[in-house]
């Protein structure tokens, strides 16, 4: 336990001593929101005077009448995805710089090495998501009229589970790697597909059936759906519970895999 706290403490110190990195990691989602979110103004497609009785198609598909709010919540998942990806990168660096071997020669448990990477990724993801959410509100995100501040806990709980699962997944991918170039390539291969094959930017109902099937297995879809229901819509509690169930299983399975792999591969 002392080892886990020490290693997580190291990561937290490294993080807050480099505010520039935090700043850079926030710029990207905010630019996406400000440029992509505002430019992709789907509302412009809707005639100003809809025939009486005809529902606004945006509300039908997105649940809300402005695309910006829809995608801004998707950006929370985007932030989680990108923040957790670096948990894998940092274990490659620790290996490369010899720090990993140093830790392996101490009594600190192997599991704590992996868990410290997962924890810091979760902390970074949640802090960044919080800042992005505030930025989204400032940029014009329309919160549901029935929103209760307590729903925020639910939003962050969903993002928490998603970041546990994703960072454990990325650490598991990185655990044997000695080349950060390989790791970088894997990250670049995974990040945008994970984002596009989900409901983060567009509703899955827009997608062909095969892509919908992929999106249904993508944890990003469930994290985004839970956050969207809680922030933008009148929550459908059955579907929110379903999201949490999926995210909970995803987090538990990948955390277990990450720890199992760390026992197996950290000492070769």
């Amino acid at each position: 336990m002392s080892g886990l706290m020490a290693l997580t403490g190291r990561e937290i110190k490294k993080w807050y001593k480099n505010p520039f990195v935090l700043f850079i990691s926030l710029v990207q989602p905010i630019i996406w929101m400000g440029l992509f979110g505002k430019a992709m103004n789907l509302g412009a497609l809707i005639p100003a005077n809809l025939p009486p009785g005809m529902p606004n198609p945006l509300v039908t598909y997105l649940g809300v009448s402005d695309y910006f709010s829809y995608m801004a919540v998707g950006m929370l998942s985007f932030v989680v995805l990108f923040a957790t990806m670096f948990s894998g990168m940092s274990i490659v660096w620790d290996r490369r710089l010899g720090f990993l071997n140093k830790v392996l020669s101490t009594p600190a448990s192997r599991g704590s090495i992996v868990l410290s990477k997962v924890f810091i990724a979760v902390i970074r993801a949640l802090v960044q998501a919080g800042i992005v959410l505030i930025a989204a509100v400032l940029l014009g995100l329309v919160i549901a009229p029935g929103f209760n501040p307590i729903y925020l806990l639910g939003v962050f709980a969903a993002l928490f589970l998603m970041s546990i699962g994703l960072s454990a997944l990325f650490v598991a991918i990185a655990i044997r790697s000695t080349k950060w170039e390989t790791q970088m390539a894997i990250m670049n291969l995974l990040n945008l597909p994970l984002l596009f094959a989900s409901n983060a930017l567009f509703p899955t109902s827009f997608m062909p059936a095969w892509l919908q099937d992929i999106a249904k297995m993508n944890p990003v879809t469930y994290g985004t759906d839970a956050a969207r229901q809680l922030i933008l819509l009148t929550p459908n509690w059955t579907s929110v519970a379903n999201d949490f169930l999926f995210l909970g299983v995803f987090a538990a399975v990948f955390a277990a895999i990450g720890i199992a792999l760390s026992w197996r591969y950290l000492s070769k």
Binding site: R10, K17, N18, G98, F99, N101, K102, P107
Partner: peptide, 26 residues
């Protein structure tokens, strides 16, 4: 172990590095 590489964390101070290793040894 004093490894070949410089494993001390560059973002931490000398003392913080020592305390970090100390807590790995409990």
């Amino acid at each position: 172990l004093v490894p070949q590489e410089y494993t001390a964390d560059e973002d931490l101070t000398g003392k913080e590095n020592l305390l970090l290793v100390a807590s790995l040894y409990e």
